[in-house]
Structure formats: structure tokens, C-alpha cells
Design a binder for these strands. Structure first.
Length: 482
RNA sequence: GUCCCCGUCGUCUAGGGGUCUAGGACACCGGGUUUUCAUCCCGGCAACAGGGGUUCAAAUCCCCUCGGGGAUGCCA
């Protein structure tokens, strides 16, 4: 078996495409098949080498590996469509010769007009086949006008096209309603996706095509081309699409969609892969978190879901949090480092062992790597400025007592072995408050925040000196002069 | 408009004629642990789109309706 992923390098890769890539990759792994990576760059307007480079970089970051592709070569190359034009040309000539295709001289404007007409009259939008039977004379005349012809595929009349889709089951189309004779080569000589995908898949010996169901309606066209060229079509499997919360095709307006953005926000590749498999696939286990090997063990191509799935940002986050929590301090610290830097702290000046112990305390609080930016300040700042919520709390009567007694505590005690518990006990007794009313103000004074790690773990890591400073600061800020 | 696909808790899904008073996970709500929080543990809420058949028996099979999505490009 041979699987493939064939994106076009027209931007950062979209998460919906990533799902297709992942599906093909894990299936190839599962069935011990080859995984082919092909670049479909025939949209000259939008494809760039730079995007191709980033596409490969992002896919590799995700952990995907391919056996054949533009960067690694292979026996069926080249793997970039823009480098295969002479191949396509050969087949176009055959099609033209056998009258399975013909030159069309209609201009863009004329076609637009025809489409407008059709939709105004509520007729299906189908190319009329106007140029199908042009005489040589007529052709010469049109060419004399300076028209450059495109090539259209001649669809056979009233034919039944049957797709035996591994996911959808049997899907039947009639050739009369797949849109009419479609263009296979543009007037500038560049061939079109629906045409060359067939040639490439055949020549690259692809046996299984797994893709989004937005391609389902292209499939009859591709099968017709395959038939005309004498190719055996691959086994198709069309997965349900990934939708936004409003149930339309997932797009930018639903939030973040490029793989790159997920990476930048601090999603882990393993988590993303895990989630992408989880969605739209039924797996013979109640487990939600699984490794690549566990995934490939459980998967079956026919267990892919046929219905569309809404992309659940929240669950993705949860999955990511599970992975962050599961990693050992050393590994996760390395991953956090860039984000800590980004927050403006100079990590190279910090003691690594100390840093790792901070991370150990903090990692359970993070769902994204970037969450660390808002959490680590309580350790690295000298005196963190309290946020609004904390200020409100520190203004209450109970807080006033706590602040005052905390201040008294540091004035009366020079040094002590158990700073934190001594502080807590002292304040509790003198101020006469306990529970939440005791701990939240203490948390606020020491960290400037009402949320964060366990205080008894955090305080020793912050250090006594900083704690004293912070208590003094909050006292000055809230109690001095009262 | 036309063609095609899809329809189980808010979301992802299990289930494929009786074992279904429909199971799990996220989210949400409540409780517990941590003398505090975003972790963790326990509990709760919550669904077979509707209508007709077939059958002793339907979430499951068939038909219709409705709803949603996709395609309808000299994009891929």
C-alpha cells in the first residue's frame, strides 16, 4: 500500500489539511505502507518556495516523516508538480488525440457571463460544450482573434460513475451533473489539479487516497480522467470535514487555524497529533491520551468517521495540558525556556536546578507552554505588582489585619527555619483569621496574584529575602498611614 | 437552483435489531483533598432531528420530511 499527502504551498498549512496529513501518515504507519509527500504548486499566483519550506518545517515539527518527497527524493519523482509539466503534456496530447479532450476558446469573461445567466435563470451551472465540435476553420478564426485556448476534458454523456469509498460506502454520480466539460489545461499551458492529480497518483503508484470530503465531488471527474488514460483509480476514503463552532468549514474567523500558530502558542506536537486523531475517528479504547504507537495499534481505516466534526479548541487545550503535565522537569523546562525569554526574563542568568524546581511546581497549571509567561513572574520578579483582583482583596478588613500582622512578623523575626509556616501561624493567631480569609491575602501579598502554585511549595522557592521585601512593599502600599 | 455527503448529550464519540432505565471524554454544575487557587479525586446534569413503515422487538433496517455541510473555479 502507498499513501500520500499532497498540499499546495500557498500559505501556512491549515489545521484541516494537517488532519488529512496526519490521517495518511498514521494509516501508512499502521499498514506498514509508504508515505509519499508531493507538492502541488500549479497555482502560480499563490505558491511560493518559501511557503514550501515552511510547510516542510511545520510538518516535521509535528513529527511526520515521509519516505518519498521533494526534499528526500524517491523512485517516482520529481515530487513537485511544477517539475512534471513535460509528463502532463504527454498525456494531454494522448487525450487530445483520442478526442477525450478538446481546445476551448471561450474567454474568462464569456464564461463568467454564461455562469451569471445560468444562475439568474436558476439553471445548473454547467459548461455548454460550445467548443467541443469546432471545425478547423472555426478554430483558425478564433486563434486569429488572438485567443489562447484552454484544454477541456470531454465528459461522456449520461454515464454512471460509482465510487466505492472506504468511509462513505458506495456513492453514485451521473456524468450529466458534475459540471460539464472541465478545464484540464489553462490557456497559459499550466495544467489543473483535477487532471494531474490523477496522473501523479497513478505514476506514483498511490493505492489509497485519504482526504477531506470537500473532494468527494471532484472524485467522479478524476475517475473519468483515469478511465480515459487507462489508469486504475486508487482506493478512496473521504473523511468528514473539520468545522468551526458555527458548523461551517473551519476558517480563520473561528480562531487560530494555521499549524504554525498552534506551535507558537505552545501546543506540543504530540498533543496536536493526539487530538487530531481523536476527532473524527473511533478508536477501540476509552483512552483519550495515547502515543503514536498506541494510535497506530488501534486504528482502522474503516473506523474513520463519516460525519463532520466541530473543532473543539477547549478539548485540544486539555489534551495539551495532559502532555505538559506528563513530561519530566528537564524536558519540559527546555520547552518552556523560549516562552520565559519571550516574557522578558533572562533565563541564561538563572540557576538551572532552581528553574527546574519552579517548573515542577508550575507545570500542572499550564495548558499551553505560553501560559508560563503569566505564572513565572511570581518567582522571577523582585516585587510583583498586584493585579486588580488582588488589590480589591487586599483592601478588605481581614486583609488589613493580615497585612499588618505579616509586617509585624518580619519586624520581630530576623531569621527562622520555617519562614512560611511560622508566618502563617503568627498571622493566624494575631489577626484571628483562618482558612480562605487567611491564605488568600497571604497569597496576594507574596505573589501579587490570587492564583498560583501551592504556597508552601512556592515560598521556599521565592526565598525569604524576597518575601520580606514583598510584605514590606504591600504594607507600605495598603496600610502605611492608616 | 442542481448534485453529493451527514444527522446519538453543548462538543468529540461508543453502540450496527433484544444485554440501552443509551457508555466514555471535554465543557458545565456540586462535593472532597490541598487550612488558599487553574492540578488531582468523587458525584451530577445532559442526547438517539421529526414522521411513517418492517419486526414479537428499532438509536440500530427501509421510506419521506426537516436541518446542517460540501461542491458547482482557467483554486487545490
Amino acid at each position: 500500500m502507498r499513501f500520500r499527502f499532497a498540499p499546495s504551498p500557498t500559505g501556512y498549512i491549515h489545521i484541516g489539511n494537517v488532519k488529512t496529513a496526519v490521517s495518511n501518515y498514521v494509516l501508512a504507519k499502521k499498514y506498514n505502507a509508504e508515505f509519499v509527500f508531493r507538492i502541488e504548486d500549479t497555482d502560480k499566483e499563490r505558491s511560493t518556495g518559501e511557503y514550501e519550506r515552511m510547510l516542510i518545517e511545520d510538518l516535521k515539527w509535528l513529527g511526520l516523516q515521509w519516505d518519498e518527497g521533494p526534499d528526500v527524493g524517491g523512485a517516482y519523482g520529481p515530487y513537485r508538480q511544477s517539475e512534471r509539466f513535460d509528463i502532463y503534456k504527454k498525456y494531454t496530447d494522448i487525450l487530445l488525440e483520442k478526442r477525450h479532450a478538446y481546445h476551448c476558446y471561450c474567454t474568462q469573461e464569456e464564461l463568467d457571463e454564461m455562469r451569471k445567466q445560468a444562475s439568474a435563470e436558476n439553471r445548473p451551472i454547467v459548461y455548454s460544450g460550445k467548443c467541443r465540435n469546432l471545425s478547423d476553420d472555426e478554430k483558425r478564426k478564433l486563434e486569429a482573434e488572438g485567443r489562447k485556448p484552454s484544454v477541456r476534458f470531454a465528459i461522456e454523456k449520461n454515464a454512471t460513475i460509482e465510487i466505492n469509498d472506504l468511509i462513505k460506502g458506495k456513492v453514485v454520480f451521473n456524468s450529466e451533473n458534475i459540471g460539464g466539460d472541465f478545464i484540464i489545461v489553462r490557456s497559459d499551458g499550466v495544467p489543473v489539479y483535477n487532471y494531474i492529480v490523477v496522473i501523479d497518483d497513478a505514476l506514483m503508484k498511490i493505492t489509497n487516497v485519504v482526504r477531506g470530503e470537500d473532494h468527494l465531488s471532484n472524485t467522479p471527474k478524476q475517475m473519468l480522467v483515469a478511465k480515459a488514460l487507462g489508469f486504475e483509480p486508487p482506493q478512496y476514503a473521504h473523511q468528514g470535514l473539520m468545522l468551526g463552532p458555527d458548523k461551517s468549514k473551519l476558517s480563520k474567523r473561528h480562531g487560530i487555524t494555521s499549524l504554525r500558530s498552534y506551535r507558537e502558542l505552545g501546543y506540543l506536537p504530540e498533543a496536536l497529533l493526539n487530538y487530531l486523531v481523536l476527532i473524527g475517528w473511533s478508536i477501540d479504547t476509552d483512552k483519550e491520551i495515547f502515543s503514536l504507537d498506541e494510535i497506530t495499534g488501534e486504528l482502522k481505516i474503516e473506523n474513520m468517521s463519516s460525519s463532520p466534526a466541530i473543532f473543539d479548541f477547549q478539548k485540544l487545550k486539555w489534551v495539551n495540558g495532559q502532555y505538559i503535565r506528563s513530561y519530566p522537569a528537564e524536558k519540559i523546562t527546555d520547552l518552556f525556556l523560549p516562552y520565559i525569554n519571550e516574557a522578558g526574563y533572562k533565563t541564561e542568568e538563572l540557576d538551572r536546578a532552581w528553574l527546574e524546581s519552579l517548573i515542577t511546581v508550575l507545570q500542572a497549571k499550564c495548558e499551553l507552554l505560553s501560559d508560563i509567561k503569566n505564572l513565572i513572574g511570581i518567582f522571577l520578579e523582585d516585587v510583583p505588582e498586584p493585579d486588580e483582583e488582588t488589590i480589591d482583596l487586599l483592601r478588605t478588613d481581614d486583609s488589613a489585619k493580615v497585612i499588618t500582622e505579616a509586617k509585624n512578623f518580619i519586624t520581630e523575626t530576623d531569621s527562622c527555619e520555617n519562614f512560611y509556616s511560622d508566618l502563617v501561624n503568627y498571622v493566624k493567631e494575631k489577626a484571628g483569621v483562618k482558612g480562605k480569609n487567611l491564605f488568600m491575602p497571604i497569597r496576594g501579598i507574596i505573589t501579587g496574584c490570587l492564583k498560583g502554585p501551592e504556597l508552601d511549595a512556592a515560598v521556599p522557592l521565592i526565598g525569604i529575602e524576597k518575601c520580606r521585601k514583598r510584605i514590606q512593599y504591600m504594607y507600605d502600599k495598603f496600610q502605611a498611614g492608616k
